[in-house]
Amino acid sequence: MELLGLYNYWAYVAILMIGFYAVIAKSNLIKKLIGLSIFQSAVFLLYITMDKVDGGTAPIIQAGVSDQIYSNPLPQVLILTAIVVGISTMALGLAIVVRIKESYGTIEEDQIHLLDQRK
């Protein structure tokens, strides 16, 4: 059951696709952003799941412990950075949605499109 054994990767793909679907299919801008957030989180999971070493613990060196197996710390560090990037993107996205709401009075994509067309 090799395929099932990789269940964490399956979960990552499923979450990725859910997020991607929301970005594409939803016309509400907030829902799009939520989708985008899910989409990014899926990639965080990919990184987190790849650094896991069987039987490994958190990579903290302790005095007296020598033969401990550690998980790979690098992807975790990377993903901390990526999370920061993701949050910034989200904040900026939300700010833009607020501005859109202010100037268009709606956050539905099709209505915004209509308003632009009319002008």
Binding site: V23, K32, L36, F39, I96, I112, H113, D116
Partner: peptide
Amino acid sequence: NRQAMPSVFKYLVMGTI
């Protein structure tokens, strides 16, 4: 222009993807 906002939003979504 206010049209800048939806264009940026589109750019943001596609750029992030």
